Computed example of a mutant assay.
Amino acid sequence: MQDQFARSENMTSAQTGPSYLTARARQESTLWLWWYRLTAPAEPKGDSTFQEVELFRRGRTGSQIILALYFLLIISIPAKFVGTNDYLLYIVAGAAAALFIATILNRLSKITIAGIIVVLTFLAFPIVNIVTTPGGLSMLVLPLFGLLVLPLLCAVSFLPPGWVFAIALVNILFTLLSLTYLPHTAELSSILAIAYAGIVTPIIFSQILVSVVAFVWVWGTTQALQRADRAEELVRLEHDLALQAEDAAHQKQLLEESVHKIVETHMRVANGDFDARVPVGEENVLWQISGPLNNLLARAQRWRHDSNELYHIKLALQQAREENELLKRRSSRLP
């Protein structure tokens, strides 16, 4: 029973892996868990591949980004009443609708499609806001160029890291083209005529800096996770090999014990002990041989018993024959 219990433990350990590799439940607040259940993909099982785990990580990170973007849209609504763009509410409503669709897709594990929608939405959000400003670009519009970092953060959260540079290139081209060809107010035109490079350079530099830092951060994190996954696989493989070696040694021990029991039974039978039998149990791995051997020994024992009975009957008959002849001789001597 102890061997069975140990073997069952080994089989369970082989299926689940070492205890130190078992994923521990994440300690999350109730609010975050509620939000993840609504917007994040389902957590993969313990035997999932690295690609599945990475997809889940991107989806959960995207879920956090989506919550921040909802908050950004909410705080953008008051700007309609203090700003100059009459189309801001329509822009916010369109962005919210697209973000809601992306949220559903993210929950359904369509991470890439959801990421594309989020990136395009918050790439268009500041661009449309800038382009539709009444009276042309003004000094009040320049801070909106800072919102162009949003699609960069969305891209590295949802999409493969290299996409961040494509988004940064689009932002830089839009910045240059809008400040060069779009209508401007007289105040902004005079400032651009004097300090065009001073206005454009910080915007372009921020795009390059954010994209490079975000790419290096996400790429490094992905590489670290891949190394950790490979190390975990190696440890699990070593663990499985050790369990297999232990099981093979156990099977060898059981085989040797079974062979010893069969040899011992043969020796007892050879010495005249026909009551000897090979123990047939769960620990006897040669039970397919031991069972027929025990049947053969049982038949041999019956044959021996029958032979002994025949021998005694033969002796009794011979004795009866001798007594009969003796009686005949005695009767022949009588007058």
Rank of each mutant, 00 (worst) to 15 (best):
V278Y: 00
L293K: 06
E323Q: 11
V218A: 12
S8K: 01
A298Q: 10
K80R: 13
E264R: 04
I75H: 05
W303F: 07
A320M: 10
L254V: 13
L105V: 04
Q27A: 14
P41H: 03
D306V: 01
T121F: 11
L169P: 09
L182A: 11
A228D: 14
V285Q: 00
S190G: 11
G291M: 14
I75M: 13
N85P: 00
N171T: 07
L152F: 09
Q301C: 02
L108D: 03
T16R: 02
E323I: 11
P18K: 02
V82K: 04
T16S: 03
L105A: 05
V118C: 00
S307A: 15
S138P: 01
L237R: 02
Q27Y: 06
G62A: 06
T132V: 13
L254Q: 13
A25T: 11
P160L: 11
F125Q: 15
T265M: 09
R230V: 15
I130Q: 04
L108C: 02
K80E: 15
A298C: 07
D275I: 13
Q207P: 06
T112M: 02
K314R: 10
S109P: 04
V212S: 07
L310N: 00
R333Q: 11
D47M: 03
A96N: 02
D3M: 02
R329L: 06
I113A: 05
F165W: 08
Q244M: 06
Q51C: 02
A97L: 11
S19D: 10
H250L: 10
V170R: 04
E187C: 09
V131P: 06
I75V: 15
I191W: 08
E28A: 11
R277A: 12
L255I: 12
L286P: 05
R57G: 00
S258Q: 06
H266D: 12
A245L: 06
I117V: 11
P202R: 07
T180Q: 02
E282D: 10
D275R: 12
L69A: 05
R277S: 10
W32V: 13
